[in-house]
């Protein structure tokens, strides 16, 4: 028995070290799906809603607006599309594991990228609230000796966000890979007496991993997407308040 736990498959190597991997391709597929969904949902909007499509679209938009305004205040209403996008994207990326795709959120590169966006926003709003001098001075508190730790603490925010998402989703990938392998081994053990190719059929892989998938992909994926958005919102709202 030989189990390989690997990252995303590399499809193409471009110059300058650019890699087109399964992560990227899956992301593009999901982006396409979301774009088509948006276009379809808002195909024929009326002031008086007819049909369920518009109700769903309005429900989604309202939910996003409400989430942002209740956590950040009315001043950040422009953030609603970004938070909505982040949530939908990360949720569908995590759920793509259900379809047997490699979830893009199980790739540290992806989550690091998204966390960087959040980090840049946090820093931008902190500088906007306190000024550049105030922001830099914030590292010197309470005493200048602690400056390195403060810098470390500043960077730990995006890193912990990225690792939280990556850790939860990739744990699911690792464990389901291991379970699949173990079940294959078990079923081959159980079906040893059958002749030829028949003994190689992994019968036990049929239903058992679904339970794991429900926890790791559905529950964990949805929860982590929600938490990623929630943390983004809270950090930005806190940063914009100033000291």
């Amino acid at each position: 028995m030989n189990v390989e736990i690997t990252g995303a498959k590399i499809f193409l190597r471009l110059p300058f070290g650019i890699l087109i991997t399964e992560t990227q391709v899956n992301m593009w597929i999901i982006m396409l799906a979301i774009a088509i969904l948006c276009k379809w949902l808002t195909h024929n909007l009326k002031v008086k809603p007819e049909g369920k499509r518009q109700v769903v679209a309005e429900y989604l938009v309202n939910m996003s607006n409400k989430f942002v305004t209740s956590n950040m205040g009315d001043r950040f209403k422009n953030f609603s599309p970004f938070i909505g996008t982040l949530f939908a994207f990360s949720l569908l990326c995590s759920l793509s594991g259900l379809l047997g795709m490699y979830p893009p959120t199980a790739d540290l590169n992806t989550t690091i990228g998204w966390a960087t966006v959040t980090f840049v926003m946090i820093v931008y709003y902190k500088i906007k609230a306190n000024g550049l001098g105030g922001y830099l001075k914030g590292f010197m508190e309470p005493i200048p000796v602690l400056a390195p730790f403060n810098v470390l603490g500043e960077f730990s925010t995006p890193i912990s966000m990225a690792i939280r998402m990556f850790g939860n989703i990739s744990t699911g990938v690792v464990i389901s890979t291991l379970v699949y392998a173990a079940l294959a081994w078990l079923s081959s053990l159980a079906l040893q007496w059958l002749p030829g190719v028949l003994s190689g059929i992994p019968v036990l892989q049929l239903g058992v991993p679904a339970i794991l998938s429900i926890y790791f992909d559905l529950f964990s994926g949805a929860l982590q997407s929600f938490i990623f958005c929630m943390l983004t919102v809270l950090y930005i709202a806190q940063a914009s308040k100033g000291d």
Binding site: G7, I10, I18, I34, T85, N109
Partner: peptide, 30 residues
């Protein structure tokens, strides 16, 4: 394939780009 735990320079940038493109799409169309 990539290592399970690996980092490179371009992939996060592509993730950011994808997120921003999707943001524009969702903002415009939804």
């Amino acid at each position: 394939s990539l290592e399970f735990l690996s980092l490179n320079f371009w992939s996060p940038l592509m993730a950011i780009g994808n997120l921003l493109i999707l943001f524009l799409i969702v903002k415009k169309f939804l």
